[in-house]
């Protein structure tokens, strides 16, 4: 059987790709489009390292077929910065030292971005439960939660 042709938008760019029907979006992002910023930690939706936004909705790209991306809008960590200008979440992750090894960071950033899009002023508890699908083994989450809260505060200030 020949490969499937998929037309989609990824990080603001129209993209076309060929994939096998069984390939996940994560497979295609990493191995076909060579967009390796999105990470694989488990392949079963339990770690959140592969988080992307699908039409604005937070999903695990390992739990979605690439074929399902037809006509959809995908956003990854690679589209968060505008040129050299980092997203406030990226900036605060750096300032707060919210990453150690950094492998979970892309997933956390995408998930936190989705949170702040729908809840600009989350409590610590809301941040923790929203991010419960993103595993980090290095930080104990403390600095990640602080970075998200700080970024939220800055973004609220910027809008006001």
């Amino acid at each position: 059987m020949s490969k499937r042709h998929v037309t989609t938008t990824i990080d603001g760019e129209g993209r076309e790709f060929l994939c096998e029907d069984w390939q996940t979006l994560l497979d295609v992002l990493r191995d076909v489009l060579m967009k390796t910023g999105t990470k694989e930690g488990c392949g079963t939706g339990d770690c959140g390292a592969c988080s992307v936004l699908l039409d604005g909705r937070l999903v695990c790209s390992c739990l979605m077929l690439a074929a399902e991306a037809e006509g959809r809008v995908i956003e990854t960590v690679e589209g968060m910065a505008e040129g050299d200008r980092l997203h406030p979440l990226q900036q605060h992750f750096l300032q707060e030292a919210a990453l150690q090894c950094g492998i979970c960071t892309p997933g956390f950033l995408v998930a936190a971005r989705a949170l702040l899009a729908q809840n600009p002023d989350p409590s610590e508890r809301e941040v923790r439960f929203w991010l419960a699908g993103n595993l980090c083994r290095c930080t104990g989450y403390d600095k990640i939660v602080r970075a998200v809260l700080a970024a939220a505060a800055e973004m609220r200030g910027a809008e006001a």
Binding site: D31, E78, M80
Partner: peptide, 23 residues
């Protein structure tokens, strides 16, 4: 002091290359 780590930006933008990121 607490400066930003040298490898920080590449890690928050997805550009850092880990073990499975080579081809």
């Amino acid at each position: 002091t607490r400066p930003v780590r040298p490898d920080g930006v590449e890690k928050v933008t997805g550009r850092a290359r880990y073990g499975a990121d080579f081809a």
